[in-house]
Computed example of a mutant assay.
Amino acid sequence: MSTSDIFLGEIVGTAVLILLGGGVCAAVTFRHSKAFNAGWTAIALGWGMAVLTGAYIAAGVSGAHLNPAVTVGLAVQGGTEWSDVPAYVLAQMIGAMLGASLVWVAYYGQFLAHLTGREATGGPGAQETAVADRTAQGPATPGPGPVLGIFSTAPEIRNTWQNLATEVVATVVLVLAILTQGLNQEGEGLGPLGVLITALVVVGIGLSLGGPTGYAINPARDLGPRLVHALLPLPNKGGSDWSYAWVPVAGPLLGGALAGGLYTLAFA
């Protein structure tokens, strides 16, 4: 597999993954969206379909890693050359940033309406609306701005070691499922059936383990869009929560490496 194949497949596949995954988060978040308040099940299913679509697009070109944790897991397991890891990770980051930017384009009017409305600007009625929102949704999580959840993840309870452990465990499940059930004949990426299995596993992880942290399970999925959030000219967007940003990077990378090692010890 050439470096150009890796770049093309991973950029396009990851961009589609983030466009559809971030898109479902936007659809559920914005009041001026037909899917407003559709709930966590819609988000978990949306991310599963995002993985399905992005991975099917990229599988025949790059093996559809779409995730540095998957790339690291495959490198530890031996299916991917360590020399190819930088190309995979760079392409995944570029694709993730491109996909997040396309979410902004697709929901441009909704972003403006949400961030310039009275809830964000403190206009008449803002206090009453904020109280109503807190009553309906529970205490606000410190750190993230009002639309950061469309781009990246944040924990419901900020406990660093629990948050890190959740991301590690969830990523081990994902990468171990790929290594045992999802690889193509060359063993260097996802095969056609593996794409479907992986998408269903992502839905399962979202429903079962996504509650504490929002299940990044993918460093590029979280860091790339978080950078886009920081760079986009969004009014009243708030902070990008950089104090937490290392957790959804370190946790999945550690989980991917652990899954690769576990597979080599127990299944190879």
Rank of each mutant, 00 (worst) to 15 (best):
G204L: 07
L74E: 03
A266T: 12
G189R: 10
L115N: 13
G13F: 02
V105N: 09
V72L: 15
L232M: 11
T160F: 02
G255L: 05
V12L: 14
R134K: 09
T80D: 00
G206I: 09
L148G: 05
G149F: 13
P233N: 01
H65A: 14
G109T: 04
V131H: 04
P219Y: 07
E119T: 02
G211C: 03
V85H: 04
G79H: 15
W40F: 01
E188G: 13
Y56K: 08
P155M: 12
G191S: 09
L17T: 04
A106G: 11
A245D: 09
M49E: 13
M93W: 06
S4Y: 03
T160R: 02
L183R: 13
Y56G: 12
G23T: 07
L234G: 01
P155S: 08
G204M: 10
D84W: 00
A140K: 04
G79R: 15
A132G: 01
F111I: 11
W246C: 06
Q162D: 04
A268F: 02
A87W: 03
V249C: 07
M97W: 04
A130M: 14
D133V: 15
L19P: 03
A35S: 07
L174N: 09
C25Y: 11
Y108W: 08
L190M: 07
G73T: 08
S2Q: 04
S240C: 12
Q110D: 03
G95V: 01
I178K: 07
A120E: 11
M49G: 10
V175R: 01
L98Y: 08
L179P: 00
A96P: 02
G21V: 10
G13C: 09
V203P: 08
G23I: 12
P219M: 12
Y215D: 00
L254N: 00
E167V: 12
P248C: 10
S33G: 05
L19S: 11
G224V: 08
K34E: 15
H32P: 00
G143L: 10
G54A: 10
L265Y: 01
A230T: 09
V201C: 01
T3M: 00
A106H: 06
P235F: 09
A58S: 14
T53M: 15
E186R: 13
S243A: 11
R118T: 12
A199L: 00
G125C: 13
I43M: 13
W47I: 07
G48R: 04
G79Y: 15
I217R: 15
N37G: 00
G206P: 04
A177Q: 00
L8I: 04
T171E: 03
S101R: 05
T80H: 01
R158H: 13
L254F: 01
L179Q: 03
S101E: 08
L262T: 04
G125T: 12
Q162E: 05
V168L: 12
L8M: 08
S83C: 06
G99A: 11
L200T: 03
